[in-house]
Design a protein around this nucleic acid. Structure first.
Lengths: 233, 233
DNA sequence: CAGTGGTCTAGACCACTAT
DNA sequence: TAGTGGTCTAGACCACTGG
């Protein structure tokens, strides 16, 4: 375990356990250096991580403060928390509609940067949040990178399996958002009415070496779609 | 100008000018150290910045590569580019509907962390992208932090004025997203039909010292609403 | 195994805040 | 002006990639 990762985790736990609120002050740098027996740079690195995750903000000449928005029930659009943790927090479950190995569509091949004759795993799921329909999801996984999937895996967290089961490192993701009207088929799966609003999201996830391994198209139930993003400007 | 900022800018320009594509390789660390005559840590810091902005990705043992998605016409949801630059890039203009000093609503006061008897600047605008309606925006600015606004300022970029005109430092923002149906009033301003889909976004922006100065409620025209987010996981 | 990026240190010096 | 975070350095050592 990296030192700065460890420190970041400890601080995040500390904030969580003590239910610290927006603006609450954390120990100063010198104190953290002593407490964790590391150099200033290492503490700084840990705090940068937390700052970028929206957990704290630092003010020169003043101190380190907790950053906490006041709203609950919002899903992080760029889940910087663990995927599995998030699923549990929101009681998200899945029903698998389809799962098979096939050739990619042109669109999927383009986004996954692979040939039309190579294999992908195709996954179609409906996901539920606290018993309500949350979204309809179609995913394409490059089979040369993700060699095996089964029903059990995709009912749980695919990303958790990729990280812990396959030992792959997920690097970054590009996410594209539109708003539109539901088609008849989408409405059926989401238990809504054709023409109702939808949030449509396309994502391409890459390994740390830059290879795209997952292209996903998600249609969200507008009633359940509450997202937030915490940015550092 | 900070060294690592300068290096990040130079590299971003270099990528832009040479029209480098996803996966193109940049000079190695040692070379960048020599070129800019700085230490390894400083180059690393510059590259971390670019990595978090979604401009490059680094692969240990291999090199530094350009990160570029293939889609154009999408607006960054968390504009990590300059605000003014973005407006120009997308030809975004504004029409001011209302501008006055008033007392905040309960909602605005809560989000701006101020009293109901303090003053805010209230701004209501319709924004256009390449001549089409983009969004209807209502903003509340804490007057004790933003003491003056006029029609000219808010027709251009308010954030540019706050940064360069007032010399304030914008720190971070919390953004909340919903999808819903347009009300009659919103439809009128956006030249759409009541009941059409909308993307509704609430944002709270804070100065670097953590004080919230802007609470905004934006309703987007779903036809023009194409956003992207680049995340590092 | 040579080359590349990642972590960590110890310390100097700078910029800003609070009192 | 004491205290706090931010930048930058020089260098040691580690982890991973690719021929």
């Amino acid at each position: 375990m990296l030192k700065y990762q460890h420190i970041a985790d400890e601080l995040e736990n500390y904030i969580e356990e003590n239910k610290l609120q927006q603006g609450d002050k954390l120990p100063v740098l010198q104190e953290l250096m002593n407490q964790f027996k590391v150099s200033k740079s290492t503490v700084t690195k840990a705090l940068e991580l937390l700052e970028n995750r929206g957990v704290v903000f630092q003010v020169r000449g003043s101190g380190i403060f907790v950053r906490r928005h006041k709203r609950s029930g919002y899903i992080s659009l760029i889940s910087n928390q663990g995927f599995k943790k998030m699923l549990e927090e929101f009681h998200i479950t899945s029903k698998v509609i389809e799962l098979d190995v096939r050739k990619p569509t042109k669109e999927a091949a383009l986004n996954l940067n692979m040939g039309l004759d190579e294999d992908v795993y195709y996954v179609k799921r409906v996901r539920y949040i606290q018993g309500q329909t949350l979204c309809l999801e179609e995913s394409y996984f490059n089979k040369s990178l993700i060699p095996y999937l089964n029903n059990e895996i995709i009912t749980e967290s695919i990303f958790n399996y990729i990280t812990n089961g396959l030992g792959l490192n997920i690097g970054f993701g590009d996410t594209f958002l539109h708003v539109d009207k539901l088609t008849a088929e989408e409405a059926k799966y989401l238990e809504l009415t054709e023409g109702d609003p939808k949030l449509y999201v396309e994502s391409i996830y890459h390994l740390t070496n830059g290879q795209p391994f997952d292209f996903s198209k998600i249609t969200y139930n507008y009633v359940q779609s509450q997202f937030f993003v915490q940015a550092v400007l």
